[in-house]
Structures are given as C-alpha cells and as structure tokens.
Design a protein around this nucleic acid. Structure first.
Lengths: 195, 195
DNA sequence: ACGAAATAGACAAATAATGTCAGTTATGTC
DNA sequence: GACATAACTGACATTATTTGTCTATTTCGT
C-alpha cells in the first residue's frame, strides 16, 4: 500500500488516478464501481485495493493528486512570467486543461464538483491554500518590482482572483475558457501599475 | 399498457422517451436503471412499468420512436425542397439534431449505437426502410423533373446516400456535421443533371 | 358521491458490487 | 539457478442495489 498523500511518483498510482478521472467523468461518482476503475487502469480489482482502501479513498486521493498537479503547473508557469497579463494567462492555463474539460463537460460535473468536493472540504481547503500561497508570492514579487498595483494585500488579491475563477468555472468548458479570457483583460487593467 | 409501436401521441409516452434519451446518454444503457428513467420522466417506477415491460422494452420503443421522428422530419423537410443541393441539406438536417448530438458526444455512444442497435436489428431495418422509401420517392421526383441524374435506381441511390451518412456518423458531433457538409458538396455535384 | 384508471409504497427475488483471502505468478537478490 | 519477497489474480461470503409485482391509496370524470 502506497501512501495516498505522498504520491511517490509511482507510475501505477498515476495510471490509477488518470483512469479514475476518465470513469468518474463517464459514469459519475455513484455509478462508478471499483471494477470500472481497475479495468480502466489495466489491473484487477484486488490489485486496486492494494493501493486504495475503497472508492472514497480513490476519490479523495484524486482530489489531492489533482491539486498537486495544478499547483505545480501554476508554480512552473508563473516562474517564467513577469508581466501581469502574461501571468494571468498562465494562471488560467494552469487551471484549465483536458482534465477539467472532461469533468466539466460531462453530465456528471455537478455531482463531482458539487457534492464530491463539499464532502471532502478538508482536502480541498488544503489544496486551495497551496494555490493561494503560490499566487500570492508571485503577486508580491510583481508589486515589489513595481510591475503591478494590488487593491489589497497579495494574499487577499490571490484569494480574490482564485475565487473569481471558481465562480466562472461552469460548463460548457469552451464558455469557461472564453470567460477566463475576458477576465484576463479586466484584471490586467485593474492590476496594472499606477503611473 | 400502451402499444409500444403505435405511439398514440400520449404526452406521457413522449415524456418517457425524451427522458430515456437523456439518461441513456448520461449513464449508458447498462448503468441506467428503471428508477432513473422514471425519475427523469417525473413519475414513479411502478408507473413506468405500466407503459413498458422492462428496460429493453423502453430501449426498443425508443429506437422506433426515434426512427419515426426522423422519418417524419425527413418527409417534411424534403416536401419543400426541389433542388438537389437543398434536398441534401434537408436530409442532413433531419438526420442530425440535439438528440444525435447528445448520444454521439456522450462517452456511451458506442454502447448505444453499437451493441444497442445491433441487438435490435429488426426494428432498425424497419426504420431504415422507411427512410429509404421517403428519400427514394423524392429522388425519383427529381429525376422525373429532370432536376437530377442518378447513378442507379432511385431506391439504390437512396440506400447509398443513407449508408454514406451512417458511415460518417462518428463523434464528435461537430465533426460529423462538418463531414455532412463536405458530403453535400460532393453529392450535389454527382447528382446534378447532365446537360 | 361513485366507479374506473392511474399511481405510489412496499416486498421478495434476482443481480451486482464490495472487501478479503488463499493460491499463483512475477521480481529482485545472493 | 534457488530463494525470499512482493504483487497480482480467481474465488468467496457479505452487503447493497435493482427488478418485477401486488395491494392500498389517490385522482379523475361522471
């Protein structure tokens, strides 16, 4: 049994997570069986039980795994962006992608994003905090370098931006991307440095 | 119990069919329960059993209902089209629509279109025959009016066109529509009258 | 208010999913 | 190559879900 929080970069673990996203998006949480997940991951059901106690454990780990991936990508994307506009686009890029698309555009998005996440608020708030930290640090750097002016503290502003994105994260995915683009233009103006 | 083939325009019956499409597209045939269908149709499960013997009966009736709707729409659309190009577009219009889109773009399209239809070949061939008849009559009229030249008999040509469409009916739906458009251009040229 | 038709609650039988265990196969070590 | 260890699978009892039906209740037209 591998530690569900550590994600020791076990390729098998990764494969299970990817498989789980696929089948959860296809059937929703309730109708997905451990057999489905195992099959999609190319292993037998008992083998899957060696990695996860039960379906809820798979789901919780999936959330953590997803947050980790998003945060890493966010960190990486921001590391090479020093302009407000470019940074905002990097944020949106990190918070979208084929996985979000799959879940958001599936008929089970509500079950998964709604109930699913509220039932696991502990993990989610942890993941959200990580995103806030990364974004706040980058905003502070922009502020210090005179490349941006913030309406309040860097952390507050980071929370605001992430909340805004959460608000527009609704299907269909294509619309969400469009709204992200519009929001970029708005925020870029609001955050640009006062001359 | 209402005759499953007659479709006595009972609004309840129609509601069940529409509900069934929705849930089959969402969960696939296997994972859809009678409870799901009943709920989506706004009635209790026992009430649903008054209209259909079991899930397979719902599905078979759904196929028949769908063929009926398509054939009617095809007939109606062709009635006002007297040009080859316009007629072809009418055909494609009748053979697409939100219902096809829902099933085709769902992750369960293969289960439903593949297994689902081959298990009910009897009903399908009946529905196909109806489409052929309608289309063949229209083609014959165009031929008689000197508005088209056909490569073989009207019925043969009708079968050919419908087979071509069946061939390009693959997800994603947007691509299917695009292929339909391309096919229109091709066929319009091939069927235009020899001068 | 009456009778007929439709509907929902509830039940037993059938089916599917779960979690576990013993037996087997793969993996790395000496 | 033999050994020990780890990972995997088939099979099983248990639990949960789904099914089809039957009866009591409600709804509707008369």
């Amino acid at each position: 049994m591998v530690d569900a929080k550590g994600f020791s970069s076990d390729p098998r673990q990764e494969k299970i997570m990817a498989a789980a996203v696929t089948v959860f998006a296809a059937y929703g949480y309730r109708r997905t069986s451990m057999e489905d997940i195992a099959k999609a991951a190319g292993m037998s059901r008992p083998a899957l039980y060696q990695y996860f106690r039960n379906k809820q454990d798979v789901f919780r780990s999936l959330i953590a795994w997803f947050y980790k991936a998003v945060t890493e990508q966010l960190e990486q994307a921001l590391a090479q962006e020093h302009t407000v506009d470019g940074g905002l686009r990097a944020i949106f890029g990190a918070l979208s992608g084929p996985m979000i698309e799959a879940v958001l555009d599936s008929p089970h998005g509500e079950e998964i994003f709604g109930e699913g996440l509220s039932e696991n608020a502990d993990i989610c708030s942890q993941g959200e905090a990580a995103k806030v930290t990364v974004l706040a640090r980058w905003l502070q750097e922009r502020l210090d370098a005179g490349q941006a002016s913030l309406p309040s503290s860097a952390e507050d502003t980071a929370r605001l931006i992430l909340a805004l994105i959460a608000g527009i994260k609704k299907p269909p995915y294509a619309e969400y991307v469009r709204r992200c683009d519009q929001l970029t233009s708005l925020l870029a103006l609001g955050l640009s440095p006062r001359r």
